[in-house]
Design a binder for these strands. Sequence first.
DNA 1: CCACTTCTGTACTAACCTCTACAGAAGAGG
DNA 2: CCTCTTCTGTAGAGGTTAGTACAGAAGTGG
Lengths: 205, 205
Amino acid sequence: MARTGRPRSFDRDAALHTAMLVFWERGYATTSTTDLSAAMGINPPSLYAAFKNKEQLFREAIELYERTEAESSRRAMDEAPTVREAVAALLHGSVDRFTAADRPRGCMIVHAASSCTTDHESVRDFALRCRARTKSTLKARLDAAVAGGELAEDTDTDRIAAFYTTFLNGLSLQARDGAERAQLHELVDMAMSVWSPRTGPLVAA
Amino acid sequence: MARTGRPRSFDRDAALHTAMLVFWERGYATTSTTDLSAAMGINPPSLYAAFKNKEQLFREAIELYERTEAESSRRAMDEAPTVREAVAALLHGSVDRFTAADRPRGCMIVHAASSCTTDHESVRDFALRCRARTKSTLKARLDAAVAGGELAEDTDTDRIAAFYTTFLNGLSLQARDGAERAQLHELVDMAMSVWSPRTGPLVAA
DNA sequence: CCACTTCTGTACTAACCTCTACAGAAGAGG
DNA sequence: CCTCTTCTGTAGAGGTTAGTACAGAAGTGG
């Protein structure tokens, strides 16, 4: 049945998208609801009616980010013919996203995490789980390659996933510090040189 | 001549050290002067008289951090007999510092940076310059190795320094997320496997 | 002892924070 | 048209922020 009552005067999805950009740019704790309501063009009561409160709005913004931004990395990985190309696609794709001209630099989730303190533990934990998901997605792709015979049976996929996740986080910080896109792509090439076909990345003793 | 007037009732250096730990743990924007004055055991007027304001206190805290923490990395690099060992010492030493039980996890400067927004541009720029210094210190060590014939003449020292700096920032985030010290050391070993003696790290096309 | 200087605690300001009460506006159903 | 529901803008409550005015305390120099 149709909803009764006065209809909402703004597009909820568009407003959420704007909120995502503001949080992405400024982090969680350092973004005020005044910033948000100004950027979204919505007065506080409407904002709270539509999104409950600042924390819920942030969670929805993160979920939107994962559905759009992070999903593109995931798809690039799935479409790559080899594991090595999958990892390269993840890293190079992320560099492109981290340095896109029309969006804030770096990864929203990496940035959000560091702007949270012990005061916002639930938000912090939420962001932490999101970051852990990136690593496990990568690990799953590596495990599939082991299962498919593309990587040696004894490959330490957890360690490799941790290595590239760590590097990826570093790239996000560099991007936020203003590093050139081309330089970041070069760094990805360097990180990929850890890789040797079939045996997977070399692991020093 | 001796200073006249009522003497200060607290140890300024000890108070600054405490402030450093609080900023390190909580970041800049997300630390309130109330947090600081409580942790330091000093009432606001004394705090402001001794350190001028929050921003100046933060700058002094960063400088103290650099003099103590960052300096230990620098010394480890200088004492290493080879470049490769110097880089390894920098990374392994940083991992130990990032996961020390009696201090906040990760790098204070990396953390501080992300907790700053456009509102605190002067603080942000200050932290940015500090991070750039880490890279140039590393680059200087690599350049010295080239000059001394330890690395090939055409080694791209800037790129190598950028690579390890990026990785180091990633390690700081992992440490803050609660990664095990042993695992981080393993990741460092992986990053070092990019290295091949004399020619320096392999750089893929 | 006294003047002078500097620090200390109390108590405060002005601005900002997240969030909301309330009255009126704008639609749907009858 | 009238009622009922839900949204909207104004305006502000209650708390926290960075920073300070002021009176008194605690030293030094004479």
